[in-house]
Design a protein around this nucleic acid. Sequence first.
DNA 1: GCATTTATTAATGCATACGCAGTAAATGCA
DNA 2: TGCATTTACTGCGTATGCATTAATAAATGC
Lengths: 225, 225
Amino acid sequence: MPDPVEKPLSNAASAVDSLRALIFDGSLAAGSDHLESELALRLGMSRTPVREAVLTLAAQGLLDVRPRKGVRILPVSPADMREIYDVLTELESLAAADAARRNHSPAALQPLAQTILDMDTALTAKNREAWADADDRFHTELVRLGGNSRIIMIVGMMADQVRRARAVTLYMRPVPSQSNADHRGVLEAIRNRDPKAAERIHRAHRIGAKEMLTELLDRYRLQNL
Amino acid sequence: MPDPVEKPLSNAASAVDSLRALIFDGSLAAGSDHLESELALRLGMSRTPVREAVLTLAAQGLLDVRPRKGVRILPVSPADMREIYDVLTELESLAAADAARRNHSPAALQPLAQTILDMDTALTAKNREAWADADDRFHTELVRLGGNSRIIMIVGMMADQVRRARAVTLYMRPVPSQSNADHRGVLEAIRNRDPKAAERIHRAHRIGAKEMLTELLDRYRLQNL
DNA sequence: GCATTTATTAATGCATACGCAGTAAATGCA
DNA sequence: TGCATTTACTGCGTATGCATTAATAAATGC
């Protein structure tokens, strides 16, 4: 029986969730400073769990604790973007190759296939948010299939760091129709147990994304997102 | 004038340092559990800064907080070792290529060259600890030259996670004479501004290390280090 | 003798208090 | 007016205490 009881989540844990949400939706703006006491007030708890949450988020590279100046929500520069996409390119491509090596059953590949369908649907409906969401799920699912827990964690961290920036560029970029083709290629390579192809296609996909994004940031002079 | 005054380091920060040292030298054994209050007593401070330190180390994958059971020092299994070396292989190889692209001056490459000399010296003196130390510095310096701050952080984290395991295998493994040749090759490629070669040589180096280590762990049935 | 319930223990999560140190404001002086 | 020094302030680092609740032991029932 699947446990229907979900434990009520500690204050510190919910502070992590809340702060992440506030950062991603811009309520805590990039580059802005916030006192611990202020955040505690906002979240309706004492400084102690907020401090713990802040420590956790600092370890994940989302903010920086600057004693007496408050915690700073870390902005993402074009240089940061390049760094992050370089890491994503390497680790996700390895994950793609690993996924192809692992003899996954069709059923195991179903969630990945679904994200591609979802992206088609979103693209047809011209719903960019839904597209971005499905795209995100594709990458998450891909590294999950790769089976390396460290890669899963690191890719999650890096994806979080660029989440805001991606949201900003979502409506500036050209219609992301190429992505689906790339994703299909990766899925096919995994189905065919072809690690080299999976790696190659995914790498090209990520390099393309990196170039598109950094070109966009440069063009619009977006120095800090 | 270089500031000669070093600020006295907070209790939380020194707790991180102390705990790391205790974990690396085995005083806090892999797989063992420890109460916060116990650690606080040991470090001569209250639970608060210890809790913060523990949170930080948990984020770095060195231990796991298990409510009411104490913090568990995470052991490293052969599977963990493979995961970690796969990540190191990808990211360090990229760093090697980046380092070769960056037009580093000979002076900038000096610290890297020095680690190779130190390894020679240690090898001649049959001093394995000194060799391991220099080897570590080579890899640290290499990723530093690559210039990607995320890679620097991640590689540091991964290296920490396998530190104990490496120490254990240090005296089991064959004399590491091949390593120096590989390191020299990487340095030469960087000097020659040959990213492809740097990447290729370093990748082979890391893959070799991974195979040697995992074979060793399997042979001696070392399930948890 | 074993399973189930109840009681006990104690480690944690959190709130709170306080002193210190770093920053800014204010003052004094040239 | 510009700069140095003093003063005031306030945010943080840490200690401490307590309520909660999970884990263990005890007790009860079958």
